[in-house]
Design a protein around this nucleic acid. Structure first.
Lengths: 206, 206
DNA sequence: TAGATTGTTAATCGATTAACAATC
DNA sequence: TAGATTGTTAATCGATTAACAATC
């Protein structure tokens, strides 16, 4: 593996590759070329080869990439080869949807705890989990070794939740609330902002 | 307005600006500088000025931007100054979350119809809507003038739903299914892919 | 061998940032 | 006027794509 800095754009494409490769593996396809990957994923084959080459020489000239081997490699790169516990705050409809989605996430990256601020939610079942009060957040996160936090609360409360996550030692946050949250530099935040996504779509209407 | 081609990155930032401007308006703030916007939104002030300048001269030198005026302008640019009906297919937890989110979306961009393939869902209430069978999709979309479609079905069915949307004359699609869908060039697709988002987060863990 | 496809360099393209004259 | 901040040009930075030697 080279020590060159990997751009965010590259890292964002790796899960896309991984997902399609998994679907190939399920169909018992053994080998795939950058050409075919590019076609299926709407990407330039040269870009795919370059992306993968940042991390090693995974392909065979004249042949392509071994599907199983490439899956293994990308999983290592994304650190999906180890168990990564995730916690979620905000037991509304979206939180529920994500918890039920748990089955689709592989074993190694799973929501292991759900919290909500309102007493009415405590004890409620979401997926295979029970909603806990916020007061138990720090202790639970430490006990379960949670490393990633998901925020599905209203915009008003998102920053507070982020602060709690950071205080509890979480390393990365996926924020679904429609607001920009601030965290220390060493914590990574991704925004999943479907309102913005929808609004920017409108621009392209005639 | 200049006729220069506007990049996707610029268009994606406009809803972010709009949202923060709305929060300022609610606090009766009259004026804002690119400097302050940049601080709050984690963006470079020069970038914000450049983004806005693509569409016109909205600011006042030495003063900044009038909040109300800028809101109005961005809404016009994003075409959010007109009524844009949206349809959703997939009455699961995620679909329900989005329908209930309807209140947060302004009047002008609203989910007006929900569909599902499974008879068990038909007639169910989601937000203020009733789940309809897929057989009614084309007629309903035409009758209500739906222009944007949201896909919240499992990956396996996403392409079929996209095809139905396209056949019914939809102009843009927001796809939540974890799969790349193919549509004609004139149809715009955005992917809201939180599984990929979550997996790429893992890369940044130590 | 001939054909296919990688890994990588060079070329291109595009987006971000810095700088500053204009001006409120 | 002095200070602030825009709009815009130029400089920088980064990402994508094309091309091709290496080689399976």
């Amino acid at each position: 593996m080279k020590t060159e800095k990997i751009s965010e754009a590259v890292v964002r494409r790796l899960p896309i590759y991984l997902r399609y490769l998994n679907s190939l593996a399920m169909k018992n396809v053994m080998t795939v070329s950058s050409q075919e990957l590019g076609q299926k994923l709407d990407l330039n084959p040269a870009q795919i080869r370059k992306d993968l080459a940042y991390f090693g020489e995974f392909g065979k000239k004249g042949i392509g990439y071994d599907v199983g081997y490439l899956i293994e490699k990308i999983r290592q790169i994304l650190k999906l080869d180890r168990h990564i516990p995730v916690a979620l705050v905000g037991a509304g409809n979206l939180g529920r949807a994500l918890c039920n989605y748990n089955i689709y996430l592989r074993e190694e990256m799973k929501i292991v705890a759900v919290f909500d601020a309102s007493p009415g939610k405590w004890g409620e079942t979401m997926g295979n989990l029970t909603v806990q009060p916020m007061s138990e957040l720090a202790e639970t996160i430490r006990r379960l070794g949670v490393r990633i936090g998901i925020i599905t609360v209203p915009a008003m409360e998102a920053q507070n939740v982020a602060n709690s996550f950071v205080a509890a030692g979480i390393e990365a946050v996926l924020n679904f609330a429609p607001v920009i949250i601030k965290v220390p530099n060493e914590v990574r935040v991704h925004h999943a902002d479907f309102t913005a996504e929808l609004q920017s779509l409108a621009y392209y209407l005639d």
